[in-house]
Design a protein around this nucleic acid. Structure first.
Lengths: 154, 154
DNA sequence: ATACATTTAATGTATTAACATCTATTGGCA
DNA sequence: TGCCAATAGATGTTAATACATTAAATGTAT
């Protein structure tokens, strides 16, 4: 369904306004859909994001601040997110030898198992995107990168 | 900056995964940037969304449930959002004659004034999008619409 | 007309988020 | 070395969100 129909707005100030609204709307839609898979396994999208980052480390520990850097939502409170993962035995936390302020985080077997369960759901969602072509997906990604370019402009 | 650099992930499972992550990342980025304008005026993005919908009514009252239908985030608690707007005298609430379950909401002069102050900031943000062409913006919008098409698929 | 399901909005509650503050540790430099 | 700013992460607090429940009004079918 078109964004016009979805939010019942017939006219937009410009194609750029329409795009901005469509970006927010489509992302909320995507997050809401994925949330359904997550909540069955008692995990939030943010916690999932952290778990994926931990798995990407392939066994190597990573500092909390480095997790934050890689997150989609960099404003989140990673310290508390890790707390939640610890409480569920999905991650381990050990103090960092070289810098005693820092904390090393590693995913547990249980965490890897959970991701294995979630993987097919997420992949299924991503695969639904092949209603557009790979080239189109790449092109949108490139244009999104471009939109974020002038971040520090006046 | 490319999404690869921003989230420090070199490889993606597919262009579709990359697009999914880029959509979420870019939208968080956009929301965060706009938040800076909003919080100076003691308003949240959701409250702003409601105000814009109210202004779009051009003086006609609109029911709470109809506001929800038009919101970007349809899962939000519109009743409480309207409460907040009322507390700040940005909106008025009157009971609906034809259906006494419903509640009619109208924007106040003060609400219109606030939007007038915020308009230039929002327009400025949207205009930064003209780093891509209008045609490209339309094209992305069309592709986003397409992504949401197979909503009720297996 | 009555009973019952549906709709509309408000509210209760628990979780999460946003933002500032605090503590411990480190690094740089006089 | 001793001092101070910077960094890392934890924590406190307030507000917002998500989800379920409640209450009133309406629609519908018998």
């Amino acid at each position: 369904m078109s964004i016009e129909t979805d939010i019942k707005q017939k006219k937009f100030r410009s194609p750029f306004q329409k795009l901005a609204l469509n970006l927010v709307y489509t992302t909320k839609w995507l997050e809401y859909k994925q949330l359904e898979s997550f909540k069955e396994h008692d995990i939030t999208p943010q916690q999932y994001n952290v778990l994926r980052i931990l798995r990407g480390q392939q066994g190597n520990p990573i500092k909390v601040s480095d997790i934050t850097e890689r997150m989609l939502d960099k404003s989140s409170n990673t310290s508390r997110l890790v707390d939640k993962l610890l409480a569920k035995n999905l991650a381990k936390r050990t103090s960092c030898e070289s810098d005693r302020r820092a904390v090393d985080v590693v995913i547990t077997e249980e965490g890897l198992d959970l991701l294995k369960v979630l993987d097919p759901f997420i992949e299924d969602w991503e695969n639904r995107f092949n209603i557009i072509s790979e080239a189109e997906a790449e092109q949108i990604s490139a244009l999104l990168d471009k939109l974020r370019e002038n971040e520090n402009q006046a």
